[in-house]
């Protein structure tokens, strides 16, 4: 019997093991082929789905590539001005303490123009979750230098590579945030392999669960690729990320249960 099972018999709802969550809309993602944003969106929405939080969740989309996140996440959402998502989320959560509130921000949004809002929301210990997508570049505007651009890394405004003497150092925003007493859980993840996606999803779930316990700000960085901005194929970009981004932005938990993780 085993050898004779047909394809049609296998493709049957009772045998389903993975399907895109209904918390993602059916709109075609506006991201470039291979971009990690899509995976990051999906794992967040899978957690919202698994925890049954659709009716209780309010998301805040940033300015940047994910400005249209509300087209893809099947929840109530608001689009913020550049860098201001943590200010919006502060008010939303304070006025709706029973809701699950998150911001989804890129490195330009969170670590450059929105540094003040990010740090102060974290320092106040606001009970929402920040998802920080760090690809070391401004993707949407065409690949300019971001605060997180690595030293020596080329971008359209560092065409010969970033020199710290003239352009400053790459900013480790997540380590900085972890120092603040208002943050409870701070972690850095990636979504380039099935293993990393599963780990990142676990981190997303932890963050949302801790938010529900009013523990303070929870912060999940996802180091991601920008193959268009980096001028590489998606597969090359993921390898470049492993070789260059991860040594500077090492993956793993930075703060757990309100305590810095000793390395």
């Amino acid at each position: 019997m085993a050898d004779t099972i047909t394809k049609a018999e296998i493709i049957n709802p009772e045998n389903l093991v993975y399907k895109k969550t209904s918390m993602m809309t059916n709109n075609v993602l506006s991201y470039c082929p291979g971009c990690g944003h899509g995976t990051a969106h999906r794992i967040i929405m899978e957690v919202i789905d698994e925890m049954g939080l659709q009716a209780k969740t309010i998301g805040v989309a940033p300015v940047g590539c994910s400005v249209l996140a509300y087209d893809f996440m099947n929840i109530d959402m608001q689009q913020a001005a550049h860098g201001r998502a943590p200010a919006l989320a502060t008010a939303i959560k304070r006025l709706h303490p029973e809701k699950t509130v998150f911001t989804y921000q890129g490195d330009g949004d969170l670590a450059a123009i929105g540094t003040a809002e990010t740090i102060h929301a974290a320092n106040r210990g606001e009970n929402f979750t920040i998802f920080f997508i760090n690809n070391g570049i401004y993707g949407m505007t065409g690949g300019q230098m971001a605060p997180t651009t690595l030293e020596g890394m080329k971008s359209s405004t560092t065409p010969y590579g970033r020199e710290w003497q003239r352009m400053g150092h790459p900013l480790k925003m997540t380590e900085l945030i972890a120092q603040l007493p208002g943050t409870y859980y701070v972690t850095r993840q990636a979504v380039h392999t099935p293993v990393s996606v599963r780990k990142a999803k676990k981190a997303v779930r932890t963050a949302i669960e801790l938010q529900q316990q009013n523990k303070g700000l929870t912060f999940v960085e996802i180091v991601s690729n920008c193959n268009s901005g980096w001028k590489m194929t998606p597969v090359q970009a993921n390898q470049w990320m492993v070789d260059n981004m991860f040594p500077f932005y090492p993956l793993g938990d930075i703060k757990v249960d309100g305590e810095l993780v000793k390395k």
Partner: peptide
């Protein structure tokens, strides 16, 4: 800048 954006977030919730 943060204050007005807090209003933006709060007002969106109908508050």
């Amino acid at each position: 800048v943060a204050s007005i954006n807090m209003l933006y977030g709060g007002a969106a919730c109908g508050k």
